[in-house]
């Protein structure tokens, strides 16, 4: 499995996906990927005060109209 994973991350598709995702994050809500990371960190800090959250599974995703927060497990 790890062999396949390594191969995947080197393809031009993975570069394209990273680029387009970063672009869309900043264009959809007018915030840079840097800002998103800060938002993500602060949301994590805030939420972990009240709930048990695993850092590796915590994820914030922005679309055109929503901000999704994933606490753990499967994708929203």
């Amino acid at each position: 499995m790890s062999m396949f994973e390594a191969k995947k991350t080197n393809t031009s598709v993975s570069i394209a996906k990273d680029r387009i995702k970063a672009l869309l994050v900043s264009e959809r809500v007018n915030c840079t990927p840097d800002t998103l990371e800060k938002i993500q960190n602060e949301l994590y800090k805030t939420i972990s005060k009240y709930l048990e959250v695993i850092p590796e599974e915590f994820d914030v995703k922005m679309t055109r109209s929503y901000i999704y927060i994933r606490l753990m497990g499967e994708d929203s």
Partner: peptide, 17 residues
């Protein structure tokens, strides 16, 4: 797509949602 040099239908659909 199979070579990993073009985004798949699922990739694009996931991004544009």
């Amino acid at each position: 797509v199979k070579r990993g040099d073009m985004m798949s239908v699922e990739d694009v659909t996931e991004i544009l949602a």
